[in-house]
Simulated scan of single mutants.
Amino acid sequence: MTTFNAPGPASGPAPARPGRKLGPIVPSVGSSHRAWLEPTRERYLSSGRTLNDLSFHVLLAKSKLSELLRGIGHYPRWEVIHRLAVALDIPGWPLYRLWKQAALDAGKSRDWVDRSTEGTTTVATARSGPPLEHGALRLTVEEGYLAYAGAFLTGDMRDGAVEDAFAILWLSFDEALASPDIRRFAWDLLRATVKARADYRDERPVLGEAAFDTVALREESSAEGQAAQLAESLELFAAISRLPDAQLDVMVLRYMCGFPPEKVSGLLGVPLAAVRSAERHAHRFLAETIEPPATEGPTP
């Protein structure tokens, strides 16, 4: 069986560089903007280059380049990001995909996106293949990722979230290879991408949409039975949404997606014992949270 437990080289301290330290990303930056900004910043910080040096290649004043890397000011045009990607040797296709999605989320029109990419799109967004390990991992986990995302999102939203997660993984692949387990690293990216787009109630992701496609509902033939099962499922899913992330992931994959424990272990990149432990704790929480259905008959 193919494993993806490549530790890669040990990561050392970031190279020292003269000048003022780059400040953090500002809190107002949205999740889709962060999806490409964070890996781009990491590439800059690990490159050893200075803002002064980089500004000559990006054709942007050092102060403006610093603002770009912190998410300050107007959303940047692709022609600027393209020059930054070339200077830092960042793969163009995944960066462009994430930049475009964030532009639309920021309220930019498709006409603005098209005008912003004039003269750079062909070179920068050509689909050169990702690393071989990336492709191998995707073949192994994509079905499970789509099933998990489908518990929170529907249609194009589901597909887009999974595609974006793989794009972020591509941009961060050196970091992924240096992590203890690439599958765990990739799963954390997927979860964050899906949760950023899910609907929320009481600060927890909503799972109710998935109730309409559970095995129990498909097997229940009568309208009355489906209505009762739906009400029970919605209560269960509301309780599941309150679980900690590790338990929530296991319960969604096990009982909403129908995967066996071994498959869940492979998707999450954690030991099988950790899956079984999370499942036990989740069952205990649900048993204490959900009231048993009322029984028929006279009350004594």
Rank of each mutant, 00 (worst) to 15 (best):
Ser265Tyr: 02
Arg191Ser: 06
Trp36His: 15
Pro91Tyr: 10
Ala192Val: 06
Ala10Leu: 02
Ala161Tyr: 00
Arg115Asp: 04
Arg280His: 07
Ile168His: 02
Thr295Val: 12
Gly73Tyr: 02
Phe173Arg: 00
Ser31Lys: 13
Trp99Phe: 11
His57Ile: 00
Glu219Asp: 12
Ala106Glu: 15
Pro76Arg: 00
Pro94Gln: 03
Gly155Asp: 01
Phe185Gly: 05
Val86Phe: 03
Gly135Ile: 15
Leu230Ala: 06
Leu60Tyr: 01
Thr122Cys: 03
Ile25Gln: 05
Glu143Cys: 00
Leu65Trp: 01
Ala167Cys: 04
Arg97Met: 10
Arg158Asp: 03
Phe185Trp: 13
Arg77Ser: 12
Ala223Gln: 13
Asp202His: 14
Ala227Trp: 14
Glu163Ile: 03
Phe185Thr: 05
Ala85Cys: 04
Asp188Cys: 02
Ala274Ser: 11
Ser221Lys: 15
Pro300Lys: 00
Asp199Ser: 12
Arg280Pro: 00
Lys100Glu: 08
Val270Asn: 02
Val26Glu: 13
Ala231Pro: 11
Ile72Asp: 11
Thr193Trp: 01
Thr299Leu: 08
Gly12Phe: 07
Arg158Asn: 03
Arg34Trp: 10
Arg83Asp: 05
Pro94Val: 04
Arg191Glu: 10
Ser63Trp: 07
Ala192Tyr: 01
Gly266Asn: 14
Asp245Ala: 15
Ala103Arg: 12
Gly19Met: 07
Arg201Gly: 11
Leu88Trp: 01
Arg20Gly: 02
Ser32Glu: 14
Glu142Ser: 08
Arg70Gly: 07
Ser31Gln: 15
Thr140Leu: 07
Asp174His: 06
Ser241Gln: 12
Pro292Asp: 12
Pro180Gly: 13
Thr117Asn: 09
Pro7Trp: 04
Glu232Val: 03
Ala273Asp: 01
Pro130Tyr: 09
Thr3Phe: 13
Ser277Ile: 09
Arg183Lys: 15
Gly258Leu: 11
His74Ser: 08
Leu88Met: 04
Glu143Tyr: 07
Ala87Lys: 01
Gly150Glu: 03
Tyr200Thr: 11
Val162Gln: 07
Tyr255Pro: 07
Ser31Ile: 15
Gly12Cys: 08
Leu139Glu: 10
Gly73Glu: 05
Glu288Leu: 14
Phe4Pro: 08
Glu118Leu: 09
Gly266Pro: 03
Arg83His: 03
Leu60Arg: 03
Thr120Gly: 05
Gly129Asn: 10
Ala147Trp: 06
Leu171Ile: 06
His33Phe: 11
Ala10Thr: 07
Ser222Phe: 09
Thr40Ala: 11
Arg41Lys: 05
Tyr148Asp: 13
Glu296Thr: 02
Glu220Leu: 07
Arg34Pro: 09
Arg20Tyr: 04
Met251Lys: 06
Ala136Asn: 11
Ser28Leu: 10
Glu232Pro: 02
Thr193Phe: 06
Pro15Gly: 04
Leu286Phe: 12
Ala85His: 10
Glu38Phe: 05
Leu139Pro: 01
Ala211Gln: 10
Ala165His: 00
Trp112Ser: 06
Leu139Val: 02
Ile72Thr: 10
Pro292Val: 09
Gly73Ile: 12
Ser116Met: 06
Asp213Leu: 00
Glu220Arg: 12
